[in-house]
Design a binder for these strands. Structure first.
Length: 204
DNA sequence: ATCATGATCTGC
DNA sequence: CAGATCATGATC
């Protein structure tokens, strides 16, 4: 399936389809190992675009392949790839990946284990050298700083799914996807503000 | 287990 | 216009 087809679809289909694919930015190449889907105003209370279009979330309402880069917890940047048609604010959050090329560049002076370089959405974004400047750029037009490699995907093994990390609303929607057994996948943390775990919630 | 740190949103 | 919230990571 082509990238354009994937990004034209709903986020819960695009998120697992992006696993195992390669992203490249600023001389660093990553193999994506963990993603999360967020629907826009279509009934997903965990989405930044749940209520309405704002200055911050405007990129989520653009066409498929648009980057939505947001600032979180006063210090971190995180990257989403918008999917679905214009005005449908759905997106896929890139949560973790493995550095496969540009290891020296990826380090950026940090002394962490290789597997931790892009383990978690903020570290992934920093490792790729992405920040606010990339917000609103499109990865399909080849002009922005981030490239998602198109073409057929190599086999990824078992894909697993479970609830999304750290969200207080919609905490049981199983829209987090990861490659089973990969050591670069980030640890799951339920939001302390989320309601108690429902007995019908999906197990990981 | 707790803190760091600031943009954004919401309710007053 | 102020206070709560936050799709987290590093360090204690």
């Amino acid at each position: 399936m082509s990238l354009a087809e994937i990004l034209n679809g709903p986020p819960e289909d695009a998120a697992p389809a992006i696993l195992g694919r390669y992203v490249r930015a600023n001389g660093v190449t990553l193999r994506i190992t963990e993603t999360e889907a967020y629907a826009g105003t279509a009934g997903d209370p965990a989405s930044h675009a749940y209520r309405r279009r704002t200055v911050r979330n405007a990129s989520m309402f653009e066409g498929p392949g648009t980057l939505y880069v947001y600032f979180s917890y006063g210090m971190h940047w995180c990257v989403n790839i918008t999917c679905g048609p214009v005005d449908v604010a759905a997106a896929v959050l890139l949560r973790a990946g493995r550095v496969v090329d540009g290891l020296e560049e990826a380090r950026r002076g940090r002394t962490v284990k290789d597997r931790d370089l892009a383990r978690g959405p903020a570290r992934l974004t920093r490792t790729l050298g992405i920040d606010r400047e990339a917000d609103g750029t499109n990865l399909l037009d080849g002009k922005g700083p981030l490239i998602l490699v198109d073409g057929p995907r190599e086999p990824v093994g078992t894909i697993r799914r479970g609830p999304r990390t750290g969200v207080s609303q919609g905490a049981d929607t199983p829209w987090r996807f990861w490659i089973d057994g990969d050591e670069t996948v980030s640890p799951y943390r339920r939001s302390p503000r989320a309601p108690a775990i429902r007995n019908d919630a999906l197990r990981e």
